[in-house]
Design a protein around this nucleic acid. Sequence first.
DNA 1: CATTGTATCATTGTATACAATAATACCGAT
DNA 2: ATCGGTATTATTGTATACAATGATACAATG
Lengths: 231, 231
Amino acid sequence: MDISDNYSLRGRVFHEIREGILSGKYKQREELKENTLAHELGVSRTPVREALRQLELEGLVRIIPNKGAYVIGLTEQDIWDIYAARSMLEGLCARWATEHITPEQKKELAENVELAEFYAQKGNYTQVCELDTRFHEILYQASKSRIMEHMMLNFHHYVERVRRMSLATEGRAKESNKEHRLILQAIEEKKPERAEELAHQHVLSTVQNIDNYGLKNLLEASGKAERKESV
Amino acid sequence: MDISDNYSLRGRVFHEIREGILSGKYKQREELKENTLAHELGVSRTPVREALRQLELEGLVRIIPNKGAYVIGLTEQDIWDIYAARSMLEGLCARWATEHITPEQKKELAENVELAEFYAQKGNYTQVCELDTRFHEILYQASKSRIMEHMMLNFHHYVERVRRMSLATEGRAKESNKEHRLILQAIEEKKPERAEELAHQHVLSTVQNIDNYGLKNLLEASGKAERKESV
DNA sequence: CATTGTATCATTGTATACAATAATACCGAT
DNA sequence: ATCGGTATTATTGTATACAATGATACAATG
């Protein structure tokens, strides 16, 4: 769940533009004109402006006063950096989750890894990715840290595209799920240090996988899939 | 330097409200009415709305659609969490800084620790705090990671009040500066692992100090100082 | 021909007007 | 007196109007 609601015009516009940036529809350095966007989305300039201001704060857009709004987006460097930060924070988060998780959350995690196993077997990587998203979301919530949850949801969303592609590579979905299982086990056994180390390694092994296949390749493939879909 | 400019009305309004929240002028759960703020700040509702939307994204304000904007602010829990995250990330940042720092930045760091030593001796903690801010800012910039810099600047700013109070406690300024010196030394000797460990420990020792004096006490004292100043 | 100044146009910044929604007060029925 | 419902008011959501700023084209000048 995101901070900004999807129901107000502004919320819709915000998500629309953000997805446009993350998906590459709006290219790096491209100027985002308020009027153009407003027409495209069938709204007035006001909600567009508000959305652009929010995107500025997220660092996805750069606003030069009295001049215009320009797409910043995420560079490959940014993605590597996010993974590096995540590898540390995901560990901290898992440690906290071990200490604060509720029985309901444990149950959902357990169901999650079972379901993911099933879909991985079937080769349904879209479902696997959604379950992966949810698995981590639960950990973020279970950490009982607003700050952590906020930060990690953002990061996780930022790298969604490359994550999706990574999970679709040979054997990665199963491997990833095996790691999820180990993390859950550590949590159930109330071993915070072990959960931390495992979550840390889990992210590192994702990074390893992305590097094996090449970040650039994965992003390109993702772009192609997107384009195919939209035609 | 912040993302949002100080020069446009919106930028001013954004910073004004944010400081109001961080300083405790606007209390937890207080409703922030667009009209009231607009009048207070002598502007129309438009820039106020934009600023509130940005603050929502930062998590400092919660907006309930069609209802209103409410102060969330930072709880003590949030502050501890920020320090925990920072303790890991500050290390990573120092490591990266070691690998990417420029001679100019090294020079400024060197001057920074000398000046800070001087002001600590004189007991001018306002200056010490500003130099501390700058010291870390340089490391963030030197990391050459936009993501890292963005995140850390925010965190550092969020805890500015408690940081200021911590630095004013018996002996902490000198101790902190000694740690800065060691970090700089590790950077100059191009020892990324050592810089990482030192930066990590530096944050932990700040946390330790805050805990010794009591976070609550420091925040209260800060509130009092603030009130005195504004009278 | 390059350069500078100026007029025109495009775009953003801010204010205001109007619409939609939620909160409140009031009134009547039971 | 209390509960429900309706009218009124307050507040936010969106659209538009106008002002300010920056970009562009073109002519005058050297």
